[in-house]
Computed example of a mutant assay.
Amino acid sequence: MADTPTTPARRGRPARISREQIVDAAIAAGNLDTLTMRELATRLGVTHAALYRWVANRDQLLDLVNEVMVERVLPADGPDGQEWRPWLADLAWGMHDAFLALPGYATRLSRPHRHTDPALGRLRAAVIAAFTDAGVPPHLAEQSWYVFITSVVGWLATQEHPLDLGDSTPRFDLFLGTLLRGLPAREPGAERR
């Protein structure tokens, strides 16, 4: 995808920023929930007007962050039929690393809000395709997507705001192994594959 602003071009000197720079500056800011557009423009060394040529408002900024984050974590190729577990594990580890690098990101995704941007739709479609390519019926592939995304994002959100559940540190590898053994979703009473 080309690095083009989301709003029509305006007269004046062209912006000296790219979508990757905007997202990298948002990540470097430390917490997406508290980041203001003014702070982001300052971090980028540009005026508000230059930033607003790329993102018209905070929602567009968050959509841009989603777009770049999904590009960073989504494997280029889908799994080969029955090999969906290693592919899904790679995706989950990519989400772990990228989402936790931006404090507040997993927490924001886990909260009720608009999830209609195309980037998350691409992630959804890829995960559903991984299941359907392995022979999972479409309605159960959709349910498997829900289980996967809510589980992984929820686990990552609790790492940003840890629960006091005991002395040991929660391990993503154990969580992920347990999650993948339980997928794909199946109807109650159906045999495990």
Results as ranks from 00 to 15, higher is better:
28 A>R: 03
28 A>I: 08
29 A>E: 11
30 G>T: 09
30 G>H: 10
31 N>A: 10
31 N>C: 12
31 N>Q: 08
31 N>M: 01
32 L>P: 13
32 L>C: 08
33 D>I: 05
33 D>Y: 11
34 T>F: 06
34 T>E: 15
34 T>S: 10
35 L>N: 01
35 L>R: 08
35 L>T: 09
35 L>D: 00
35 L>E: 06
36 T>C: 12
37 M>P: 08
37 M>S: 07
38 R>K: 13
39 E>D: 15
39 E>L: 11
39 E>P: 00
40 L>Q: 03
40 L>W: 07
40 L>M: 05
41 A>K: 06
41 A>G: 04
41 A>W: 07
42 T>N: 01
42 T>K: 11
42 T>I: 09
43 R>M: 10
44 L>I: 10
45 G>Q: 04
45 G>I: 00
47 T>K: 06
47 T>E: 08
47 T>W: 05
47 T>S: 15
47 T>L: 00
48 H>F: 06
48 H>M: 04
49 A>I: 07
49 A>P: 03
49 A>S: 14
51 L>R: 02
51 L>D: 04
51 L>S: 02
52 Y>S: 04
53 R>A: 09
54 W>V: 02
55 V>C: 10
55 V>L: 11
55 V>H: 04
55 V>K: 06
56 A>T: 01
56 A>C: 02
56 A>I: 02
57 N>C: 08
57 N>R: 09
58 R>I: 05
58 R>C: 04
58 R>T: 08
59 D>V: 12
59 D>M: 09
59 D>E: 13
60 Q>F: 03
61 L>D: 00
61 L>H: 02
61 L>K: 01
63 D>P: 00
63 D>T: 05
64 L>R: 02
65 V>G: 06
65 V>K: 05
66 N>V: 03
66 N>H: 15
66 N>T: 10
67 E>V: 13
67 E>M: 09
68 V>A: 12
69 M>Y: 00
69 M>H: 00
69 M>P: 00
69 M>R: 03
70 V>A: 05
70 V>T: 07
70 V>I: 15
70 V>Q: 02
70 V>P: 10
71 E>H: 13
71 E>S: 10
72 R>T: 09
72 R>A: 13
72 R>M: 10
72 R>V: 02
72 R>C: 01
73 V>R: 03
73 V>C: 09
75 P>A: 11
75 P>I: 08
75 P>H: 10
75 P>T: 05
76 A>V: 13
78 G>I: 03
79 P>H: 06
79 P>G: 01
80 D>K: 13
80 D>F: 13
80 D>Q: 15
80 D>A: 15
81 G>K: 01
81 G>H: 07
82 Q>E: 14
82 Q>W: 10
83 E>H: 12
83 E>M: 08
83 E>D: 14
84 W>D: 06
84 W>Q: 05
84 W>H: 13
85 R>Y: 02
86 P>R: 07
86 P>V: 09
87 W>K: 02
87 W>L: 06
87 W>D: 01
88 L>D: 04
88 L>E: 01
88 L>R: 08
89 A>P: 00
89 A>M: 05
89 A>R: 14
89 A>I: 04
90 D>V: 11
90 D>G: 14
90 D>R: 15
90 D>W: 00
90 D>P: 02
91 L>T: 06
91 L>Q: 03
